[in-house]
Design a protein around this nucleic acid. Structure first.
Lengths: 331, 331
DNA sequence: CTGTTAGCGCATTCAA
DNA sequence: TTGAATGCGCTAACAG
């Protein structure tokens, strides 16, 4: 637990020289530098970052607000954020909000109390209950939906879900069920819009009976599969708003002696790693998770650096991933 | 960005009184307290935790070293650690090591440089390449295997894998394949021992051909399934050392026209959430993930508090989870 | 190129 | 019960 003074003493120089040896080595003469480094070695010195950060009034940390970190999609995003942060000398403080405003407030307090310098918000924005944007707090939203009123990097969920539902239509499906996320979730709203648009464009009438409200978990997908299996007139295809619900639905359908894709076609959303290993592998939309995480962190870095951004919305491209869970409609 | 001085001035008291109002309110008179609180409100004061922590020489943060945080098992553990930490006023810094010593060193440096006060290590201990235990660094290992030379909370993996392989034996299986983790991984070693012991006790000769080395990922489980499907004499059951590999193996077997459990029985390990939603649902061993995380954090808290622990090893109980992936052997 | 010095925001002694 | 003063470890401004 030696400090800068101990090093200075040992090296026979001033503490300023020791400090410079770390932050501006080029401003220190060769001999001094060597003396300092030897002394550092000798006394086993490690700069106290708490003191350094305190002095420079920067915590070199950002909090990442994530609704649920057992969700593999967020896991991918967080990893990318983390890597970008580390490269730039920042740490991340993970805050799992579980849709609780109290928890969210708790974590935002970390930046109010200077334990963190900024926030990345991974929950989609909801105007009535969102704490961000917050005056004086640097924040960027990632993976959100339309209508985020501050810097955000996201996908076009309307276009993406249009694309995948349209694919089902192009395979001849007309009666297409949909397992949504929670009704008020902005992602649900955007993706539902894509779904409706694809139907409308194909001249298929929208039928509210064909909507099942899930919550993005496997178990809700399972419930959705059960729901559709009870129909007299079972939909020939189901659009699940994420891969986890797709996996749950596939399981439930099979329990009802309905095979995917022979009896019912299924599509998902996200392209999580396991989507390849379900049976059948899930045809889905890949969200550019890593790119979004990386970009979000880079933007936050700029914001914290006092830079002005010339865009508020950064839209990244989705990708259609064709696998095995869809078959053409056969009469 | 007002500071304690601004509050003191506004309240007409000294900064010492303001400070006390926060840390020892009972040592401040009622009127003073009110004046302070009003002033806090008026100037929008938030204590600067960086300064406070610096002053008290505690970061109130711990780093959690995790091999892979896209692994749902670790996710459960981390969540429990996180909750326990928050309750006690600590934050966690997540460090994904991906089995790289450099990264691990990087994160351990966070405590050497006083950005964190302790470490929880979730990778199993390997004597030749492990940075912990480290002199002067408070650390506890969680979810490890036998032979951790510092405070650890874990399960008995030998007993657990014995139990599940023994279950296969009791169902009449004699030719039992095994998809392991990496050969040198301590968990692989422990679980392999359980496997061998169960076989030995049943008088079944151990056959190295029946071992396939995976790495705990779905894709390696898939490779393992492929491997066993090529046998002339296909094993009637396979013990997969985690659920993810079990899911991959099930998929590969089915691609080879082998159904689980009709043609081959499968068991897993961990009891991840998705083990219920695979088809068939996986019979497995539940690791007490939450309990281990919580306990580990509690122990670390005690260590950081200067307390001596009266045990070095805390062993938690596993649980056998019966589902659908096993059928009796039918000659 | 180097040293002296002030001060970041706070908790904590010591007197009063 | 309160206030004045000190210093945690470091960086940065300034003078030399």
């Amino acid at each position: 637990m030696s400090n800068i003074r101990a090093v200075a003493k040992k090296a026979g120089v001033s503490i300023a020289t020791v400090s410079r040896a770390f932050t501006n080595p080029e401003k220190v003469s060769k001999p001094s530098l060597k003396k300092v480094m030897d002394a550092v070695e000798a006394v086993g010195y490690r700069p106290n970052m708490m003191a350094r950060n305190f002095r420079s009034a920067k915590a070199y940390a950002v909090v990442v607000l994530v609704p649920d970190f057992a969700n593999l999609f967020f896991t991918k995003v967080i990893r990318a954020i983390q890597e970008t942060a580390i490269k730039n000398g920042y740490n991340i403080l993970l805050g799992e909000t579980r849709d609780s405003m109290e928890r969210e407030a708790e974590y935002i307090k970390l930046v109010e109390t200077r334990q963190a310098d900024g926030v990345i918000q991974l929950s989609p924005h909801t105007p009535d209950r969102d704490l961000l944007p917050h005056p004086h707090i640097h924040a960027v939203a990632a993976c959100g939906a339309t209508g985020t009123p501050y810097t955000s990097v996201r996908m076009d969920h309307v276009a993406a879900s249009f694309a995948i539902v349209n694919y089902l239509v192009s395979m001849g499906h007309k009666r297409i069920g949909c397992i949504t996320g929670l009704e008020k979730n902005p992602h649900s709203i955007d993706r539902l819009e894509g779904y409706k648009t694809a139907l409308a464009q194909a001249g298929i009438e929208f039928d509210p009976e064909l909507l099942f409200e899930g919550d993005f978990t496997m178990s809700s997908g399972h419930a959705g599969g059960d729901y559709f299996a009870q129909f007299d007139n079972i939909p020939s295809a189901i659009f699940c708003m994420n891969d986890e619900m797709a996996a749950g639905a596939i399981k439930a359908l099979r329990e009802n002696n309905l095979n995917v894709p022979q009896d019912v076609s299924i599509v998902g959303f996200d392209d999580l790693a396991f989507a390849t290993y379900t049976d059948p592998a899930i045809t889905t939309i890949r969200q550019p998770a890593e790119e979004m995480g990386k970009k979000a962190m880079q933007l936050l870095l700029q914001l914290m650096d006092g830079k002005e951004l010339n865009q508020q919305e950064y839209i990244l491209k989705h990708e259609f991933v064709l696998r095995e869970s869809v078959q053409p409609y056969k009469g």
